[in-house]
């Protein structure tokens, strides 16, 4: 069953964390404040245009640059349900998991899905359907260890359970 469906927003390679959330707004960590400025320098007005459940489709090395967890927080709070890219920068990758932002790696989907296409995603199986073009893609499976963290409810829940049982 597809549990995510929305419009695709396309971005290029090497989208950096300053593009996702400019550092000038990092004097707060309020998700809703951050969401207002999400992708502001790359696509002015993005935060006002994106609808809850929409999907970002980007090029390689998405989220490169700073360690700011404000980046996945801003994307998620802006309403984006999933980011699809061929590769993610490593700190962003960890941060996305830790903040509950769904990210999927797929070279093919990232290349083929066009801006404005309607996309449906099954987050359990990693199936990505481009409903506009009729193409289906399969995302890279989530590593077992990270899946286990997700099953525990995230990193902090994982630790809470471990600390309580010790």
């Amino acid at each position: 069953m597809n549990n995510i469906q929305g419009k695709a927003w396309k971005f290029g390679d090497d989208v950096d964390t300053d593009a996702i959330i400019p550092a000038r707004y990092l004097n707060t960590s309020d998700p809703l404040e951050l969401a207002k400025h999400c992708m502001e320098d790359a696509d002015t007005g993005f935060a006002g245009k994106v609808k809850a459940g929409d999907i970002m489709v980007a090029g390689k090395n998405f989220g490169c640059g700073s360690s700011r967890e404000h980046a996945p927080i801003a994307i998620k709070a802006a309403g984006v349900a999933c980011v699809i890219a061929p590769t993610f920068a490593r700190i962003f990758y960890r941060n996305a998991f830790n903040t509950g932002l769904l990210i999927l790696e797929s070279v093919e989907a990232a290349a083929a899905i066009e801006a404005g296409h309607e996309v449906a995603i099954n987050s359990t199986t990693g199936t990505i359907d481009d409903l506009t073009s009729g193409q289906r893609f399969k995302a890279q499976p989530i590593p077992d260890f990270m899946q286990k963290l997700l099953d525990d409810g995230g990193l902090m829940e994982h630790w809470r359970k471990r600390l309580e049982s010790s």
């Binding site: 700011r68 700190i91 960890r94 941060n95 830790n98 903040t99 902090m156 630790w159 600390l163």
Partner: peptide
């Protein structure tokens, strides 16, 4: 290595990181 705030929070509490 650089990490995000949540990874850092876990390290602050437990002295460990994956």
């Amino acid at each position: 290595t650089g990490v995000g705030s949540t990874d850092l929070a876990a390290a602050m509490a437990t002295g460990k990181v994956w």
